[in-house]
Computed example of a mutant assay.
Amino acid sequence: MRGDGDGWVFSSDGSRHWGRHGAAGLLLRAPSGSGESSVLLQHRAAWSHQGGTWALPGGARDSHESAEHAAVREAGEEAGITDDLLTVRAEHVTAVEDSGWSYTTVVADTDHELDTVPNGESTELRWVAEKDVESLPLHPAFAVSWPSLRTVAVRAVLAPDASLDLGARTVRLDVGRFGWVVDVVAADDVESAVAAAQHPTELHTVVVTADDAVRGAVSADVTVLAPESL
């Protein structure tokens, strides 16, 4: 059933944006065979706005919808993916216009590269290695937002108070900064957690803890996340 969100909104510079109540898209990641991340992209049908470019499954929000609900609904309509197959990690507003229109990217993970079922809005749906996304002709708005959505490879150090089963997944490092967990170290005590956090690595180190002793002992370039934030 068609909702009440379909329609163009015009900004003061004359540019138009789809979605009377804003729009949302789903950035869905999955581990590839190598453990690195892949993202699900949509090759937009030629007849659509910016047809022929690659972007995220997404579309207009209805007046009663949250960004998450709209993004997941659109992914179901455009890719055949249902909410029970994914875990939402974060939301990131990637565009705001003076008209009040905005676009929210909903970041989510799944544990493998899901099969997809395209509808008429897609020429193709493809799991693309994250490192290869920029090699495609991207939708202009997605190209602008991609640097704030892409991940860096993360080594997660679990302090003794962080009893988590942390596998390959997206973590939010800060506003507009995301990581993909590729290595996990479980520390038995505070000293070993601090030592692991300070160990030289090419990966971005994240320490998962609520322990002030650990927080205070790691260097400023190490990201510290509370267990309840994951």
Rank of each mutant, 00 (worst) to 15 (best):
V157M: 11
V182F: 01
T205H: 10
G167T: 10
D183R: 14
L164T: 10
V157F: 08
D165H: 13
S163Q: 12
S192I: 08
D174P: 00
D174K: 05
P200W: 06
A186N: 01
R177F: 01
D189F: 05
L164W: 08
H204N: 00
A196H: 06
L166S: 05
F178S: 07
G179R: 07
V190T: 15
V175Y: 10
D188G: 15
A168C: 10
V154Y: 13
V181K: 01
H204M: 00
H204T: 14
G176W: 12
L203A: 06
A195R: 14
A197P: 10
R169N: 04
D174T: 02
G176H: 12
V190Y: 02
A156G: 08
A193I: 07
A193R: 09
A195H: 02
R150V: 12
V206C: 07
T205M: 05
D183M: 00
V206I: 10
E202V: 14
A156I: 11
A162N: 07
V154C: 09
R177E: 14
A197H: 05
V152E: 14
A196L: 07
G179K: 05
Q198M: 12
S192H: 14
V190I: 15
V207M: 02
G176Q: 12
A159Y: 01
A186H: 07
V185C: 02
T201Y: 07
E191I: 10
D189E: 13
V181R: 01
W180H: 07
V181I: 13
G167Q: 09
W180L: 10
A153M: 14
T151F: 07
A168E: 11
T170F: 07
T209N: 02
R155A: 06
L164Q: 09
D161T: 06
S163G: 00
L164P: 04
V157I: 15
V181T: 12
V207E: 00
V190C: 11
A159I: 02
A159N: 03
A186I: 03
D165Q: 13
A195K: 12
E202L: 10
V181D: 01
V185L: 02
E191Q: 13
R150P: 06
V207C: 03
D161I: 08
D161L: 05
A195N: 06
V154Q: 09
R155G: 03
P200C: 04
L166I: 11
T201D: 03
V157P: 10
V190W: 00
V152T: 15
E202C: 03
G179S: 11
A159P: 01
D183K: 13
V194N: 04
T170Q: 10
D174N: 11
A196N: 08
D174Q: 04
V184G: 02
V152F: 08
A196W: 01
A193K: 08
A187K: 04
G179A: 10
W180D: 02
D189A: 11
T209M: 01
V154I: 15
A197N: 10
D174W: 06
R155L: 11
S192K: 10
Q198W: 09
A187R: 03
T151N: 08
R172H: 03
V171N: 04
T170C: 12
T209F: 00
G167A: 11
A187M: 03
